[in-house]
């Protein structure tokens, strides 16, 4: 497994470099914005002068660009995001409360979408041409092209408002008389289902195409010829290989899915990072927006890193 550990090391370094580049990009983006943080800082009333000084020195808005860039990089990498413009609270505190929520929503939906999508995609490719295949492809295509917030609203109307199966909004409601964890899961359910369906659509289509390619491969004939039962041919030999291109496209799916999470949090009034981000943008709360963007990107990168590891595990050919 020496190849594997080398592969992991190479991937880690690559991910870290990408992270540095993205951090730089975020820095440039915020520098390029027409509204300057220091102007906003000065117009924010409940900021005490000492706090302003602290923030000015923390972000060093008075210092030259290069110095500011360095301290920015150090601060970001050490998760020291300064103080929110709008809430006069350390950004890391605001975020630390919200990150697990979004992780639950986004992570849960993405992992489920992959498990179900790979299974379903493999299955419908195997039974291609049938009713299952046709209807799955049509449904996936429709979901893939639906605006996330709209399907979220429709689910909200149908399942929360009309049928009252799920709560309308929020994260936790102490008046529900449910155990804390159960109540949270109950609240997360609806947005997660919507996000799951949205992410699922892409995965199913991708997996189906990959599986159709794999079905034509010679080793599938070998697997059948040695007398394996259908399920083993399909999943052990077929899906295992078809997963490879799907896993390599994880990053695109993550980016898609996190976008969906941000939008859906706003539809479902789910107090996660997405809702925080939109609020911060409306109030031009730079430290919060910057930190949230960074954490979101970090989540995507780490997810992709995990995907790379899975890929390395799945495909012996890359472990060289």
């Amino acid at each position: 497994m020496a190849g594997m550990s080398r592969y992991v090391a190479v991937r880690s370094i690559q991910t870290f470099i990408t992270l540095l580049i993205i951090l730089t990009l975020i820095f440039i983006m915020f520098e390029a914005l027409p509204a300057k943080p220091q102007d906003l800082l000065a117009t924010t009333p409940n900021m005490q002068p000492s706090q302003i000084e602290y923030m000015v020195s923390l972000f060093g808005y008075d210092r030259p660009l290069s110095e500011r860039y360095l301290s920015y990089m150090v601060n970001m990498l050490t998760f020291d995001f300064g103080i929110s413009f709008s809430q006069a609270e350390p950004v890391s505190e605001i975020l630390s409360e919200r990150i697990p929520r979004t992780m639950l929503l986004f992570g849960g939906a993405t992992v489920l979408a992959y498990l179900v999508g790979i299974y379903l995609g493999a299955l419908i490719a195997w039974r291609r041409g049938g009713v299952l295949d046709g209807s799955s492809v049509v449904i996936s295509l429709v979901f893939y092209n639906m605006p996330s917030f709209w399907i979220g609203l429709i689910f909200l109307v149908v399942f929360a408002s009309e049928l009252e199966w799920f709560p309308l909004t929020g994260w936790y409601d102490p008046t529900d008389n449910l155990p804390y964890v159960i109540d949270i899961l109950w609240h997360v359910c609806l947005p997660m289902i919507v996000l799951l369906l949205l992410s699922l659509a892409g995965t199913v289509l991708l997996m189906r195409t990959a599986m159709l390619d794999v079905i034509g491969e010679n080793y599938m004939v070998t697997a059948k010829a040695i007398g394996l039962p259908e399920s083993k041919v399909l999943f052990k030999h077929g899906a295992r290989n078809a997963m490879l291109p799907v896993v390599t496209s994880f990053i695109i799916a993550f980016v898609f899915s996190i976008g969906g999470a941000v939008v859906l949090e706003n539809v479902f009034s789910f107090p996660g990072m997405g809702a925080l981000y939109i609020d911060a943008l409306f109030q031009l709360d730079f430290p919060v927006a910057q930190a949230t963007l960074y954490i979101i990107t970090l989540m995507v990168l780490l997810g992709n890193f995990a995907a790379d590891l899975i890929y390395g595990y799945l495909d012996p050919r890359v472990r060289i």
Partner: peptide
Amino acid sequence: QGAMNAFNPV
């Protein structure tokens, strides 16, 4: 044809 992917690569 062994050379042509008759073995599962993974």
